[in-house]
């Protein structure tokens, strides 16, 4: 039997709606008479953390596989920041498709992430901010995915979106259509663009190495976990106004704001852990701290 299954991997952040994207595309495919699956990867990660969602769509045969997708035909990246912290093209098939939400131009993205795959770029964040008023790009990205892959028809998305969003459906459909119009597509190139950054992979013990009873003997071992990857904005400080009151230090839920080394009494957030919640900027009595969008 010929393998007719098309697999999609969605890269998003918790709360951004990657799971909804996957569900909507599966519902649209099922409405077109195809077989489809949509499911997220489960973990303890919370809002802001990098998350994965998956689709399988098959126009001929029922889908038996239940595992997560390792070698996708299509990869969609909902958050521009994720491009630089995870290897989004990992396992992407030859002549597959990579769809990226980024404010950068197609040429720039191609120079960084071009390869033997079709590349589509859309500024979904700008479209979502304009039409929806929020930075939730799940429905917007669907437009770009449909344009780049033709995996389903645009019309098929209308009903699932209406069912899911009710009164807000119209705006979501508009955002989806706008992304369809604005997405720019480049054909595959033979040579993969050189990776500028090595991706750090945390090394955890395998299950065989764990102690019976799930005892963890290394105190505070979670501190090797880089929660700094979750943030979409980071704090910047203007120390000339700082009165060293320490409120930012007290109110940081991560405990990552510490007295700065070498300089007397100033506080600084550790970007390895900072999740970009903005509490320090909000609570600073002298407006020393401002939140700056990650680029």
């Amino acid at each position: 039997m010929k393998d007719t299954t098309i697999e999609i991997r969605w890269h998003g952040r918790g709360g951004q709606g990657a799971v909804t994207s996957a569900e909507l595309i599966a519902m649209a495919a099922i409405a077109e008479g195809e077989y489809a699956q949509a499911f997220p990867s489960f973990g303890p990660e919370r809002r802001g953390a990098p998350v994965l969602a998956f689709n399988r769509i098959d126009n001929a045969n029922p889908i038996r596989a239940r595992s997560s997708v390792i070698n996708p035909d299509i990869v969609a990246v909902l958050d521009p920041g994720l491009l630089y912290i995870t290897d989004v093209v990992s396992g992407l098939k030859q002549n597959g498709t990579l769809i990226v939400n980024s404010p950068k131009s197609l040429v720039d993205i191609k120079s960084e992430f071009g390869g033997p795959w079709k590349l589509a770029v859309v500024n979904a964040t700008a479209i979502a901010r304009e039409l929806l008023g929020v930075n939730i790009v799940n429905t917007t990205m669907l437009g770009a995915v449909v344009k780049a892959t033709g995996i389903i028809k645009m019309e098929s998305l209308v009903e699932p979106i209406e069912e899911r969003f009710g009164a807000r459906a119209k705006r979501n459909i508009d955002a989806c259509a706008k992304a369809y119009k604005e997405a720019e597509i480049a054909e595959p190139v033979a040579v993969r663009a050189r990776q500028k950054r090595e991706f750090q992979v945390e090394k955890w013990p395998a299950w065989q190495e764990l102690l019976p009873g799930c005892v963890v003997i290394e105190a505070g071992s979670a501190s090797q976990y880089r929660t700094g990857d979750w943030k979409s904005q980071h704090p910047e400080s203007d120390y000339s106004k700082c009165i060293k009151c320490g409120l930012c230090y007290i109110y940081c839920p991560e405990g990552c704001i510490v007295p700065k080394l070498g300089e007397e009494g100033f506080f600084e957030a550790d970007m390895y852990y900072c999740k970009g919640c903005g509490i320090c900027a909000q609570e600073c009595p002298k407006d020393v701290i401002t939140m700056v969008e990650e680029s």
């Binding site: 990660e45 919370r46 809002r47 979670a222 976990y225 109110y251 839920p253 405990g255 999740k275």
Partner: peptide, 18 residues
């Protein structure tokens, strides 16, 4: 309470625990 915990951004609970 070591940093690197997986609480949501802006969690009031982990601030209290810390």
């Amino acid at each position: 309470l070591a940093p690197g915990h997986r609480a949501c951004t802006g969690c009031g609970e982990m601030l209290a625990v810390r």
